[in-house]
Computed example of a mutant assay.
Amino acid sequence: MERIRFEFVIKAMENDPKTNVLCITSLEFEKHTYLIPEKLQPARLHEQVIKTQVYLKLKDTIHKRHDKRQVWIRVTPEIRGAYMDEDGNMQFKGYLLEECDIQKPAACISEEAMTEFFENFNACKKETGKSYNIKKLTEKFVLQKFNKKTSNVTQWLDIFEMECTRMSITEDSVKIEALRLFLEDSSLDWYSSMLIKYTLNSEWSTWKENFCETFADRGWSPVRYAILFKYRQGSLMEYALKKEKLLLEINKTMDSSTLIDLIATGLPNFIADKIDRCNIKETKDLFNNIRGLEHLANKKYLNNNAGNLGNKNKEKDSNYKPCRICEKENKGSRYHPESLCWFKNNSYNNKREHIRTVNNSELETELNEIDPKN
């Protein structure tokens, strides 16, 4: 079955650049492509084409300027009469169409040329790598700075080397220069000393060995702290994540089962007992269970506070006895120190007033008995 492939393009109208018009720019028949002159490109002039079902689909497909589609249309007697003359020449409305010669792809490049190209490319890449801004390059490192809180120096240095490999930093001098940007505290003084002794042109292995020997923690303190770290208060998830980090810092090759056991044993017993150990295969499974038990930790915290308050009240009751002064004054059982009792002072004042009254009466009697003439 004979077919012609038409190329449709939405272009600006010649007289009105703001208006779009659907045009047919070329057609392909029997592996030959023919160009349609610009004045004959508007699709409305191709009466036999716009009657086909393919054209109706095309109108719903492309809408924006410069949109392009190539579609096949079956050669009917009407299509043949519109685009071919009696001698088989491609034409449209009496205009013989120009055939377009399509350039064939260039021959394959020889193996020698490809080899030479890649050698030149690698050489250029090396030269370009030397001019890299080390500071900008290391900003992409996924690595925390080394300081006194870093527990495992060997593991930290391994991560540094992996990041250098990821960023294509292979030269020893560049690694040494990049190392300075990830040091803090006393490690910066170590770097300055090493720079004086060995310079930037030394081997990376020398710096690595010296770094590990200088800052390696050969004691058990980090290990003890990581293993004995337990939940005290606050968020359960924060505890679990920190415990995992501490354990991996001392041994990143620790298997998942051991990691899960050590994290779970640091939880309160009443929370850990609610987690089914058989269903925990990875640390993420443990974290999911812990997240669902956060409310228990909060409830326990509130109960502890209430219990502490009750204990304080009990202590208060046991330390203070009913005030005897209040009992004598018939004021009921009141719990406060007798030295601070208000009724004690009131009783004392009443007693003083009573004494004054008695003394005044006696004085008045004595004065009456004395002879006024004297």
Rank of each mutant, 00 (worst) to 15 (best):
D255N: 15
T76D: 06
C323F: 05
R44A: 04
E38N: 07
L137S: 03
K300Q: 12
T33A: 05
S131M: 15
G310R: 11
K135W: 02
D16V: 00
G310Q: 14
F182E: 02
Q91K: 13
Q53F: 00
R5P: 04
N330Y: 03
S333W: 14
P37A: 02
S235T: 08
N120A: 04
K64R: 14
K197M: 12
N308G: 04
I24K: 05
T154M: 05
D172V: 01
T365P: 02
L58Q: 09
F160A: 08
M13C: 00
Y34T: 00
D87M: 06
N89E: 10
D60G: 13
Y239K: 11
W204L: 15
G81F: 02
N298M: 09
L58V: 13
Y95S: 07
T165G: 05
L309C: 04
F229Q: 14
V54A: 10
S361K: 12
E177Y: 00
C341Q: 06
Q48H: 07
P42F: 02
G129P: 01
E139M: 12
R69F: 00
E99M: 11
L181E: 11
L183K: 01
E213M: 07
L22K: 08
R74Q: 14
G234F: 02
Q233E: 13
E171K: 11
T115A: 15
Y132K: 11
T19R: 01
Y335K: 03
K321D: 04
S256W: 09
D60R: 08
S131R: 10
L246V: 02
K149V: 02
K328G: 01
S333M: 08
S318Q: 14
N288M: 10
R5K: 13
T214F: 04
L293G: 00
R352C: 05
M194R: 12
V153K: 06
K31S: 12
R44E: 13
G88V: 03
N311I: 09
I355P: 06
I109K: 11
D101H: 14
N304F: 05
D261L: 04
M90T: 00
K373V: 05
